[in-house]
Design a protein around this nucleic acid. Structure first.
Lengths: 161, 161
DNA sequence: TATTGTTATACTCTATAACTATA
DNA sequence: TATAGTTATAGAGTATAACAATA
């Protein structure tokens, strides 16, 4: 059973290599959740995770964000943001506005329809997450959350280096 | 700083939504590590994570694996395994053998060169992981590892349902 | 009929680099 | 010169579906 459960984590057989075993298990769990989310987003809302993430950023910034800001926050290159924004604009969920003083810059905002649609998706999405993480008690969730904060700090230092 | 650190986790502003906040932080950390690994695999070994994962599966199974087994373990469809195997075969790292009794089935194995190359990559890869997870003490690693075991069980039940 | 693997096709996301317009 | 955004291109990975060979 657990000794041959057919996924990426089963790469290792010994109990050395603590960090590697941890990483494979972490990756395995995260991938499973992510795959579920991608699949449900596609089936229930005909959308994708990158598109959802872009909308989520805009939802937090009612005044809109410049393309380069979206690029930074989503950690993808500018050309990609252009493409994803094109799709969302075609769906009527976002709009582009030229910046008043800097005419090179473009501000992307949610349309009213985009805001409504995102709220609907976000609520459903949160329900999925609650369901998928029901394997942990509230105390355990807090525990992992706090541990991840430490890891995140460490990783951020790696990024800068 | 931490209140505006420009990544996906910053989607939420309030401190409700415990499960969602946990998930976003988990996804953020995992993605950062994964991006590092992908980048280093490309730069140092001119390869990709799916290719590395396929080799890793074969390394654990010296007698080789059927295409359908690889498909299950890597959690991708058969056509994809064909494509990745084609690439690895072209590089001389794996070979296809026809099954003696069932001539529909094909067994994929590491070549001696593939085994040597994978061992080299795996050792380097483990070093990266140790480095990236140095933000956690051994005790903390064990703690998260055990917590993930619980989550994994829960997710497996979701899969079957 | 069902299974194994391949092929063909299409789509999404991604990066790189050349390009335009503006600062 | 540098920056903001777009366009063009290419490549990887993915899924779906039709297909051939075999069981």
């Amino acid at each position: 059973m657990a000794s041959d459960d057919l996924d990426l984590e089963t790469r290792l057989s010994d109990d050395d290599h603590q960090a590697l075993r941890l990483w494979l298990r972490l990756l395995s769990c995260t991938t499973r959740v992510e795959d579920q989310i991608r699949q449900r987003l596609r089936q229930d809302f005909a959308t994708t995770l990158p598109r959802f993430d872009l909308l989520a950023q805009l939802e937090r910034h009612p005044d809109g964000l410049a393309m380069r800001e979206l690029s930074k926050r989503l950690m993808v290159t500018g050309g990609n943001v252009t493409g994803i924004t094109d799709q969302l604009e075609a769906e009527g969920l976002v709009l582009r506005e030229t910046h008043p003083s800097d005419r090179r810059s473009i501000t992307v905002k949610l349309t009213p329809q985009g805001r409504r649609q995102f709220k609907r998706m976000a609520a459903t999405h949160e329900g999925w997450i609650v369901e998928l993480f029901a394997g942990w008690s509230p105390a355990q969730k807090t525990q992992v959350y706090d541990l991840l904060a430490q890891l995140k700090t460490h990783l951020a230092q790696k990024d800068n280096a």
